[in-house]
Computed example of a mutant assay.
Amino acid sequence: MSRSLRRGALAASALVISIASLAACGAGNDAQTLGVRPDNAAVTVDDVKIQNAVVITQPDAAAQGPAVVSATIFNNSRTPQTLEAITLPGTKAKVELKAAEGSGPITVPANGSVIIGGKGNATATIANGHEAAKAGDAQEVVFKLSQTGEVELEAFVVPATGYYQDFGPTEIVKPPAASPTGSPAATPTGEAGHGSTPSGEASHAAGH
Rank of each mutant, 00 (worst) to 15 (best):
I126H: 08
G102C: 03
I116F: 03
P109W: 02
V36M: 08
V45P: 09
K92Y: 04
A42C: 03
F143I: 03
F156Q: 15
V114Q: 01
E150M: 07
D46F: 07
A85E: 09
N52C: 11
A133F: 03
D137Q: 13
F156G: 15
T44S: 14
G149R: 10
V69Y: 09
G118M: 01
A31E: 07
P105M: 02
G117C: 04
V54G: 12
K134Y: 07
E84M: 09
I50F: 04
A99S: 08
Q51A: 15
P105S: 02
Q147H: 14
A93E: 01
D39R: 08
V142D: 12
A110Y: 01
S146R: 06
Q139H: 10
L83S: 05
R37T: 09
I116H: 02
V142Y: 12
S70W: 05
F143A: 05
K119N: 11
G104C: 00
A138I: 15
P109M: 03
G102P: 02
Q32N: 10
V55W: 08
T91D: 00
V69H: 12
N29L: 14
A67Q: 12
A138Q: 15
V157M: 10
T125Y: 05
V157T: 07
V141S: 03
F74Q: 14
Q64L: 13
T125D: 06
F156I: 13
N121F: 02
T33F: 12
G120T: 04
T72V: 15
K98G: 10
N40W: 08
A93W: 01
L34C: 06
N128M: 10
N121H: 06
A135S: 13
T33P: 00
Q139D: 07
A67P: 14
E131D: 14
Q81I: 05
P159K: 00
E154Q: 15
E140M: 13
G149H: 09
Q58P: 09
N29V: 14
G118D: 02
S103M: 04
P105G: 04
D30H: 07
L97E: 01
G118R: 04
G90E: 01
S77M: 05
G149D: 12
T107Q: 04
R37S: 12
V68R: 15
P80T: 02
S70C: 13
P109C: 02
Q32F: 08
I115E: 10
G118F: 00
A160P: 07
R37I: 05
A63V: 07
N76H: 14
N76K: 14
E101I: 08
D39C: 03
E131G: 08
G26N: 11
V69R: 11
A27D: 11
L145F: 09
I115T: 13
P105Q: 04
E150S: 15
A27P: 02
A160H: 02
V48T: 13
A132M: 04
T125Q: 07
N29E: 12
K98Q: 09
K92V: 05
E152D: 14
V68L: 13
G65E: 03
P109K: 03
A133Q: 03
E84D: 14
Q64R: 15
S146H: 08
